[in-house]
Amino acid sequence: MGNLPVERLRALRPFLICGVDFCGPIYTTLKIRGRPPVKTYIAVFICFTSKAVHLELVSDLSSNSFILALKRFIGRRGMPTKIFSDNATNSVGADRKLRELKEAFLAMGPDLKRFAADEGCSFTFIPPRAPHFGGLWEAAVKSAKHHIVRVTGSALLTAEELATVLAEVEAILNSRPLVPVSQDPNDGEALTPAHLLIGCSLRALPPEKVPVDPVRCCERWQLVCCLKQQFWRQWSKVYLTGLQERNKWLHPKRNMQLNDLVLVHEDNVPPQQWVLGRVVETVEGQDGKVRVAEVATKTGTIKRPIHKLAVLPLDIEGI
Rank of each mutant, 00 (worst) to 15 (best):
C217T: 02
R220E: 04
K209R: 14
C226D: 02
L205D: 08
K209M: 12
P206G: 03
D213Q: 04
C218H: 11
Q230V: 05
S201G: 14
P211V: 04
V210R: 02
E208H: 10
P214C: 03
P214A: 01
Q230Y: 06
K228H: 11
L202M: 13
S201F: 02
V224M: 05
L205G: 01
P214M: 01
R216A: 15
Q230K: 14
Q230G: 13
R220V: 06
L202N: 09
P206N: 02
P207L: 08
V224D: 03
V224H: 05
E219V: 07
D213W: 06
V210L: 08
K228E: 10
G199T: 03
A204W: 07
L223P: 00
C225N: 13
V212Y: 11
V210W: 03
C225F: 08
K228D: 04
C226L: 04
E208S: 13
V215C: 09
P207K: 04
K228Q: 12
E219W: 09
V215T: 13
V210P: 00
K209N: 12
P207M: 05
S201T: 15
L205S: 12
C225K: 09
L227N: 00
D213G: 02
L205P: 01
A204Q: 08
P207Y: 04
S201N: 14
L205F: 11
L223S: 01
V224G: 04
W221I: 09
G199R: 04
L223H: 01
C218I: 14
V212P: 01
W221K: 09
E219F: 14
L205N: 10
Q222K: 13
C200F: 09
R216N: 12
V212K: 11
K209T: 14
V215I: 13
W221Y: 09
L227H: 01
R220D: 03
K209H: 13
S201K: 11
E208T: 12
C217M: 06
V210K: 00
R203Q: 14
K228T: 08
E208Q: 15
C225I: 14
S201L: 06
L223F: 02
K209F: 09
D213N: 15
P206Y: 04
S201A: 13
C225V: 10
S201D: 15
L223Y: 01
L202P: 01
V212R: 12
R203A: 13
P207S: 07
C226M: 04
L205Y: 07
R203K: 12
L227Y: 02
V212D: 14
Q230S: 15
P211E: 04
A204M: 13
L205R: 10
Q229I: 05
C226W: 00
V224A: 08
L223M: 11
A204V: 06
D213V: 06
L223K: 12
Q229T: 05
G199S: 02
D213H: 05
W221L: 10
C217N: 08
E219D: 11
Q229S: 10
Q229A: 09
C225M: 15
G199C: 03
Q229W: 04
L202C: 12
Q230R: 15
